[in-house]
Each structure stands twice: as structure tokens, then as C-alpha cells.
Design a protein around this nucleic acid. Structure first.
Lengths: 201, 201
DNA sequence: CTCCAACAACCTAACGGTTAGTGTTACGGT
DNA sequence: ACCGTAACACTAACCGTTAGGTTGTTGGAG
């Protein structure tokens, strides 16, 4: 979309530095615990200056959620790139199943245990999801298929990210996603009550 | 319930100190801006030690949301103390209308403008609401009337606090509450699909 | 009435995330 | 070859927050 703008070496070096910092940080966090590792430790181990760390990551917590931009994109694309005519909410439910499985069954399990153990990380995750919800809301509002009001779009987006958070904490995450999405589906239909679902035909 | 445990003077002095700190802090924040006022400033102006501030408030942001325990209680009571036989979701909607009006039309307007202007405060408010949602979820789960699963209760609680956040940002907050609560109502009914709504009769 | 345990509040000093301020290098386009 | 700029470094702080240890008032037991 907007990748590979002009060229090369600088951007490669920059990306390499960023990756090195993120990898080093995650390794140290898992080895010694999130709170026991300081930014100065990460910087020293990655052989960069402290200020360099903060030029790549806005905060210490962001080191843990390095790939969060992917999730944001995937959520929006689950809406925009779905098969033409495919229903909206089931598409989102499917994506959510994929996300939950990815976070839960993966080799990523220790990371999520670490996140759950740290209030700072949990709080950061919360506001991150809120950003994702806003992006998703924008994608929903741009949908030609079922144009609800802006408020309804934002509400649905929030409900969806809520579903993720709740499912991750539930005993049976897969079932929880389905349970919550039954509610989400009903909510979305109710939002379209005034505006007819099939107006054109 | 659990107020006025034994007695007197100590608790009164303590409460007075707490109030003095909160009042001083809010005044300074509004005068000079949240970021421009440090904890050390607040402590000096309130004539207490820095450590005393933190013995009354867990964080700087908590100085702004001093009365948040009230909101938490009111939410739970909107469920538990409603007229017998009264429907659940409308009771919550009514409470939400009251909350939104209180935050919006009040003399509290400058405070909320300050909150909206500060990322730190917005983030703090987010996790605060999450706590409120958990409290509300517990109240819902204890309801004899319509016992959905624990997941459904937590989901509804989240949707409700989402409604507050979204309504506060909407052009027409009152209408937004109603719009979102139409969705919430539908979600709650859908959650009761498996479990019959009137099982005993 | 006295004395003691508890607890609010104090002070000092630090820790750890974050940010200016200021250079220094190495690309990349001209 | 040359210059503007982006990436990184170093230092030194700022600010929220916490630990350590002290003082003084209070409420209640003896």
C-alpha cells in the first residue's frame, strides 16, 4: 500500500535496529521478568543509546506489543477485504477466532502470561485496543453495505475488541468468542432497525 | 453498609486531609493545566508531604477522579436496588443518562475538557471504567432474575461502560445513549436465547 | 488516669521511565 | 563531490513513585 517508499539502506538499517531492540527486550523480559528489566538494561544489551530505544518505541510497554500494527490492519481488512456480499459480523467473528488462537495456543503463551502478570502492560494493552477499535470503527463507517450511524459503528468496534479481551480471560476462549458474538450480532442488527437492512432492491 | 465503623476524630482528620489534597490539586490543575502541575506542587500547596498525597491517592491521575467510587457504587445499585420486577437494561440506561448529564451539563465541564486533553488521564479513565465494569458484572451475575453465563454478564458490563465513553464523545450524548442501549438491549436478549427468559412458571 | 499500640503524617533519598539539548556520523539526492 | 537530513549517541535532568525510618496524636485497655 504505502511500503517501500523510495529506497534502501537507511531504512533497512533502521528496521534492523528496531528489530534488534525489540528482540533483545523481549528476551530480557522473559528471562528476568518485565519489572526487573530497565530501559537502560535493554539499551545496553542491544548496544544502543536509551534515546534510540525511545525513538523507535513510544514507551517501555510498546516493546512488548511490537507487532500491534498488524492486528490493527487485520481487523480493518477483515471488514474491507471480505468476500463481496459476505455478512459483516461473521467475518469479524472469524478474524477474532484467529486472533485468539494466535495469542493463546502459540509459542506466544509465555508472553501473554507476562502481560497478564503486569498491571502496566494490561493497562497499555487496553488503550492499544481502543485505538484498534477506532480504526475498525472507521472501516465500518466506510462500508457501503450496511451504513449505520457513526455512533453505532464505534459501539460495534468497541464490542468487538471487548470480545477479544473477555475471550482471552475466559475458561474456554473459543466458546466465549461465539457466545459474545451472538450478542454482538444482535446488537448490530438492532442498530440497523431504523435504517432498513436491504434498502435498494 | 460498611461506613462509620467505630468513631471519630482520626477518621475525620484523615478525610479532611484527603479532601484538602483533592481540592487543592483540582484547583491547581484547572488553573495551570494538568501537565504543568507536579505532585510536589500539589503537596506544597496543600501543605502536606509528597508521601501523604500517595497514601491517599494511588496515582496522580486519581486526584482528578476522586469521586469514582461513587460511580462504581451507583452502577451496581442501579442493578441491585431497582424496583422488583423492573427490567434490567432500562434501569441501566436510566442510570447512564443520569451519569452523562452529570458529567456533561454540570459545573464539571472544565474538568472533562481537561481530561479529554490529557492522554494520561484518558488512559487512566479507561482502566478505571474497566474496574467499574467488573463490579457491575459481579452484580449482574448475582441477579436472580435473568441468570446468563459469567461471560455474558461481563460482556454486558463492558458494553455499558463503553456506552458511557462513546456517549460522552458524541455530538448528542443523550441520543447516543439511547442508540447504544438499543444495541445493548438486543445483545442482552440474545445472551438469554439458550436459557429461557421465564423458566420457572 | 496512664500508658501503649496503631496509625497518620513527616522527611530524605533514591529508582526508573521519559525527554531536552547537543553533537556526530553516514546516507541519499542533486 | 556536496549538502541536507535522518539516525544515533551522550549527558543531564524532570517527574511520578516508593522505601526507610521518625514523630506525634489518638483511641482504648488496664
Amino acid at each position: 500500500m504505502s511500503e517501500q517508499p523510495p529506497s534502501g539502506r537507511r531504512e533497512r538499517k533502521k528496521a534492523a535496529t528496531r528489530q534488534k531492540i525489540a528482540d533483545t527486550a523481549l528476551r530480557l523480559f522473559l528471562e528476568r521478568g518485565y519489572d526487573a528489566v530497565g530501559i537502560r538494561d535493554v539499551a545496553a544489551e542491544a548496544d544502543v543509546a536509551v534515546t534510540t530505544v525511545f525513538s523507535h518505541f513510544a514507551a517501555k510497554e510498546a516493546l512488548v506489543f511490537e507487532r500491534d500494527a498488524d492486528v490493527e490492519r487485520r481487523l480493518a481488512r477483515a471488514v474491507t477485504d471480505r468476500a463481496p456480499g459476505a455478512p459483516l459480523v461473521p467475518a469479524l467473528r472469524q478474524e477474532m477466532h484467529a486472533l485468539v488462537r494466535h495469542c493463546l495456543a502459540d509459542e506466544a503463551a509465555p508472553v501473554w502470561r507476562m502481560i497478564d502478570a503486569s498491571p502496566a502492560l494490561r493497562e497499555y494493552e487496553g488503550s492499544m485496543r481502543l485505538r484498534h477499535a477506532e480504526t475498525l470503527a472507521a472501516a465500518l463507517a466506510a462500508e457501503p453495505g450496511a451504513p449505520r450511524g457513526a455512533t453505532a459503528c464505534r459501539a460495534l468496534a468497541r464490542f468487538v475488541v471487548d470480545a477479544f479481551a473477555l475471550a482471552r480471560e475466559a475458561d474456554d476462549p473459543e466458546t466465549a468468542v461465539d457466545d459474545i458474538f451472538r450478542m454482538v450480532e444482535a446488537a448490530w442488527e438492532a442498530a440497523g432497525a431504523g435504517v432498513p437492512v436491504r434498502p435498494v432492491t
